[in-house]
């Protein structure tokens, strides 16, 4: 059941990206260009997602745990360090250059050849490099951070 719900969540996420137009790199880059051909659509995607997830998460926090796993793994870290700032800055530059971030890139890999052949392989290489260069535990990703610090 866990695998099925993860598959469904991934599919729902991907179709949400397609419906919202976020699998079009030009549309995403146009959001980032308020002095040119600005398209504010991306703000509505974030707004729609947060409008559902904020109350959804608040309701889940009242429950004892998830349906198919032992416990909720809410990220516990609250510190703001150089890795967070530098990583976010590098991510933002890359995102602006091509109008692609990880979710839309994986979805668009099935519809745009150069995303599959160039962007996604480079992104995966960047992820491997970041994990290899991470100072302590190699679990340098969002969910794994739950156990990184008290």
């Amino acid at each position: 059941m866990g695998v099925a719900s993860a598959l469904l969540a991934g599919l729902l996420f991907g179709i949400g990206l397609i419906v919202s137009g976020m699998t079009d790199p030009l549309k995403v880059q146009n959001f980032l260009d308020p002095f040119g051909t600005w398209d504010p659509s991306l703000a509505f995607v974030m707004g729609g997602a947060v409008a559902v997830a904020l109350p959804g998460f608040a309701l889940l926090r009242r429950r004892a745990g998830p349906l198919f796993a032992p416990a909720f793994r809410w990220p516990a870290r609250e510190d703001i360090d150089a890795r967070l700032i530098g990583g976010a800055a590098a991510f933002g530059i890359g995102w602006g250059l091509a109008g692609l971030c990880p979710g839309p890139a994986l979805v668009a890999a099935l519809s745009i050849p150069s995303v599959a052949l160039v962007f996604v392989p480079a992104m995966l290489l960047g992820m491997v490099l970041a994990r290899a260069l991470a100072p302590r535990a190699p679990r340098a990703a969002t969910g794994g951070a739950a156990h990184a610090r008290p």
Partner: peptide, 20 residues
């Protein structure tokens, strides 16, 4: 495009997260 992918992958993992 390759540079963009590298920065997105490296930055997202180093900064512990992306747009999602």
């Amino acid at each position: 495009l390759a540079l963009s992918g590298l920065l997105v992958g490296f930055g997202a993992v180093t900064g512990n997260g992306c747009t999602s």
